[in-house]
């Protein structure tokens, strides 16, 4: 199956949050009520029972005036996903259509993925002691349907389909926007982190939408995954082998040279 992606066009979004509701509905997620913070935004961030949210940003530019940006945020379904690599239980996999799916049966709630993810998308669900996140409705896609959010979007801001085709569409749209009042319009998710399966058409630079401009996998997590885990652990069997060797040689040499250990100082026990 070809790599399928969700294209989200900020310029067409009206922030109705129909996608948020459709997501809750399809995934049977309970409501999470968070206190009002003075913003239209329903939740501070995605959480264990909220896979999709619309984020709202207000900013003022001395030249162009007040800007009110909003953006749909959920899992990016990176082509080369960090969560897949970090999970010690192999609970993550890429679906044939390119979605990153998480298997709660294998999950042990260690939350390594949350911090390996450059977007901190996988969220801890306390009531189950497991991680949860958007699946790009892999179950629906398998049956030939489109994800719940894309299906419900009334303004055409969300399109689900073949990634390469969507990229062409997105580029054409960015070209159009640049000529029509959005000179800083840009595409996000084409090259970022080697490509995302959530492609954005933004009307402004990514930082105006709280997206990392040049997201990178964490260097600390990389060091941990690529160096510490595979190589440093060998020091332990080395110590055991050294002790085993000493166990044999001390006894062999003692037999050769008579009583050992009473005639000279040696390493003592504990401190």
């Amino acid at each position: 199956m070809a790599n399928k992606a969700n294209l989200y066009d900020v310029s067409r979004c009206t922030a109705c949050r129909g996608c948020q509701v459709a997501c809750k509905d399809w995934n049977q997620l309970p409501a999470v009520i968070e206190p009002f913070t003075g913003s239209y935004q329903t939740h501070e961030d995605t959480n264990g029972d909220t896979f999709t949210i619309i984020k709202f940003f207000e900013s003022e530019d001395p030249v162009t005036g007040v800007h009110w940006n909003f953006i749909k945020r959920s899992c990016m379904h990176c082509l080369d996903a960090e969560c897949v690599k970090a999970c010690p239980q192999g609970a993550y996999m890429k679906s044939p259509s390119g979605a990153t799916i998480h298997d709660p049966e294998k999950c042990i709630g260690c939350q390594y993925c949350t911090y390996a993810c450059p977007f901190e998308i996988p969220k801890y669900r306390k009531r189950e002691d497991k991680i949860s996140k958007c699946t790009l409705c892999a179950d629906r896609v398998e049956e030939g349907l489109t994800p719940a959010c894309a299906r419900t979007c009334p303004s055409g801001a969300l399109t689900f389909g073949d990634r390469n085709e969507l990229l062409q569409q997105a580029e054409a749209r960015v070209k159009y926007l640049r000529k029509n009042g959005f000179p800083r319009a840009t595409i996000y998710g084409k090259l970022e982190l080697g490509g995302l399966n959530n492609i954005f058409v933004l009307t402004d630079t990514p930082d105006k939408f709280d997206l990392p401009v040049n997201p990178q996998p964490s260097a600390t997590i990389g060091f941990w995954q690529n160096w510490v885990q595979p190589y440093f652990g060998w020091l332990i069997p080395l110590a055991l082998a050294g002790s085993a060797m000493s166990f044999v040689t001390t006894r062999l040499l003692a037999n050769k040279q008579g009583e050992h250990g009473h005639d000279h100082p040696v390493e003592g026990g504990h401190e």
Binding site: S243, G261, V266, G269
Partner: peptide
Amino acid sequence: CMHGYLGSFHPGSGESF
């Protein structure tokens, strides 16, 4: 590992056990 071995089975330092 080293400490456990030296503090027990090593003939010279086993007394420290």
